[in-house]
């Protein structure tokens, strides 16, 4: 990609934590070089203590580099003005718990010097976006973790940022919320925004990230597009429909592969993901209130309806 599309760049970015006396405690990041381009979803992966959050904090100016440079929009990370174009969702949503959703968004809107009308409009839009309309007058102390994550995301979007940095965005969310969040992130990318996210949930990263960097012990281990990193050129995957698996088909396939020097490692019906199954069941449940799982015997003999409870089979 062209250089003008680079949104974030680190050059030999190094962070060493020291104690009060200047003695070295831990090398959190060692000479990290990477570039994040406009309009992509970039994932930071790695085990605990690998330097993901440190990288994000360095990019946001929450930490100062021991060596090297961190540039965001071609400006040093310590430059405050760059923050006008950034939205940040921390790992835990550390918002002020004595404020309600509207007040929270109003406060962060003021920090961006939005006028009162714009703040009201943006707050209403974002509260709608994160599905907190019914709870907008409740103080955040009363929110569940998922709700706090949603309002946290809303505050990160109050300034309509070009770059959104998300630290564990699906942390604390149920599968529905996780899917919603992933859809939203993809949607933001489709609007032309650049996303940097770090997550422990590899399936999330795999689902939505365009490129990933894998860190371990503060060092960059791998960097590239998800597809290129996951692609196994030594193996071949074939999907087919309209045929049933039987011995004839297996033998035919084995002979074709043998002709080209290959062997079948696995052949069978594909399974869906647990997430897809869960989402389908919840969607059906919403479509048919009162439906519930019953063992096969009981299911054969419908339960007599005694009241209007929704927990009966139909």
């Amino acid at each position: 990609m062209a250089d003008q599309d680079v949104v974030v760049e680190t050059r030999k970015l190094t962070k060493i934590y020291r104690d009060f006396w200047g003695r070295q405690k831990k090398v959190a990041l060692r000479a990290l070089n990477l570039k994040v381009y406009r309009g992509e979803i970039f994932g930071l992966l790695g085990p605990n203590g690998s330097g993901k959050t440190t990288t994000i904090k360095l990019l946001l100016g929450l930490l100062f580099p021991t060596d090297g440079d961190a540039l965001v929009f071609d400006q040093p990370a310590a430059e405050v003005r760059k923050n006008e174009r950034i939205g940040y969702l921390p790992e835990e949503s550390y918002l002020y718990r004595f404020l309600n959703a509207e007040e929270t968004l109003d406060f962060y809107g003021r920090l961006f010097k939005l006028d009162a009308a714009t703040r009201r409009k943006k707050a209403a839009e974002l509260i709608e976006l994160v599905n907190l309309g019914a709870d907008k007058k409740r103080i955040l102390k009363e929110y569940s973790k998922g709700m706090r994550q949603r309002i946290g995301l809303a505050q990160a979007l109050i300034n309509d940022p070009e770059l959104v940095i998300l630290d564990e965005p699906t942390s604390g969310l149920d599968p529905l919320g996780t899917r919603w969040m992933k859809d939203l992130i993809v949607n933001l990318r489709n609007q032309g925004k650049t996303i940097i996210m770090c997550s422990h949930r590899l399936e999330d990263v795999q689902d939505i990230c365009d490129r990933v960097a894998i860190l371990n012990e503060g060092e960059l281990q791998e960097l590239g597009s998800v597809r290129s990193l996951l692609e196994d050129v030594q193996r071949l995957e074939l999907r087919a429909s309209g045929v049933q698996l039987n011995e004839d088909l297996r033998k035919d396939l084995e002979s074709v592969l043998a002709k080209h020097g290959g062997v079948i490692e696995f052949i069978g019906h594909p399974t869906t993901t647990l997430e897809d199954l869960f989402l389908r069941i919840v969607a059906q449940s919403k479509a048919h209130p009162g439906r519930r799982y019953l063992p096969e015997k009981a299911a054969a003999k419908p339960v007599e309806v005694k009241d209007s409870s929704t927990h009966v089979s139909r």
Partner: peptide, 14 residues
């Protein structure tokens, strides 16, 4: 300590 300050200093706030 509560890291609330992180959401402020990552805005254009001196």
């Amino acid at each position: 300590k509560s890291q609330s300050i992180h959401t402020i200093v990552t805005k254009p706030v001196e």
